[in-house]
Structure formats: C-alpha cells, structure tokens
C-alpha cells in the first residue's frame, strides 16, 4: 500500500455518480436536504473519524468570531447611544444630541474597520 502512489482524488460529486440513483428532491421541500452541509464540496476535510464535522481551521475561525463579537458589542453600544441622543434631543439639548451622533458615526467606523480587516474571509 505504501509503495503505490496515491491515486488522484476523484472529482467530488454529491450523491451518486449514477444520476438514476439520486432521488429527485426538487418537488418537495426543495431547501431541505438530508446531507445539508456535507453535500457541499467546499467542505474539504471532515469525517468520518475524530473531529468530524468540527471546525477545520480554528485560527481563522476564531479571528472571525472575535471580529463578529466586537462588532456586535459596538452595535449594542450604538443602540444605547441612540436612546441617549433621542432623550437629549427631546429635552432640548441639541448639542449633546450631536455628540451622540458623532459617537454613533465613530462606532460605525470601528465596525467598518473590523469588516475591512478581511472582507473576503468566510
């Protein structure tokens, strides 16, 4: 086994290579598949075996998670700032409301920055 060269991997094709064995699923519940997630050729290394179905690139994934969590935190801060700005404006403190608007814009720039770190990552 070890002296033989590894044969090239066949092209991935979901379902059976023989089309007649693939159930026609178009008619009913077209968005639901028993293999959802695993029928996707973009998933490169997963199961069977230990670690099947888990994250394959944890470093990249955790970076993306961190960006997402930071962005969500900033958005929560924005929601708070918006209520403060509305209250201040309603009480006639327009200057304070403008400070609130400035804070909201800065927060938006932070979120945009987090996104621009790597807009192509998935």
């Amino acid at each position: 086994m070890s002296d033989q060269p590894i044969p090239p991997r066949p092209d991935y094709r979901p379902g059976s290579a023989q089309p007649r064995l693939n159930r026609p699923v178009r008619e009913r519940y077209p968005q639901i598949r028993a293999t959802s997630g695993y029928g996707d050729p973009r998933i490169r290394h997963t199961g069977p075996g230990p670690g099947a179905g888990t994250e394959q690139e944890p470093e990249r994934s955790s970076k993306l998670n961190a960006r997402l969590v930071l962005a969500l935190t900033v958005v929560v801060g924005q929601l708070w700032a918006l209520t403060v700005a509305v209250n201040e404006w309603m009480e006639g403190n327009t200057g304070t409301a403008w400070w609130g608007a400035g804070f909201l814009i800065l927060s938006f720039l932070v979120v945009i920055g987090l996104w621009l770190l790597d807009p192509k990552d998935r």
């Binding site: 959802s36 962005a71 814009i105 938006f108």
Partner: peptide, 30 residues
C-alpha cells in the same frame, strides 16, 4: 440548500445595521 448566511455575511449585516444606526443618530440630532 445549505445555510447561505455565513459569519462573514453576519459581519456585513452587522456593519449595515451599524451604519443605519449612525444615520439615525445624525437624523435625530438634525
């Protein structure tokens, strides 16, 4: 048929929401 919203898409959605809030804040102040 797989989930179409990935985490990157979430980041984009969050950025859009954030921009909406910023515009709203300017509108309120104005």
């Amino acid at each position: 048929a797989d989930s179409l919203t990935t985490r990157r898409d979430y980041l984009r959605i969050v950025a859009t929401v954030s921009g909406g809030l910023a515009v709203g804040g300017v509108g309120v102040a104005a």
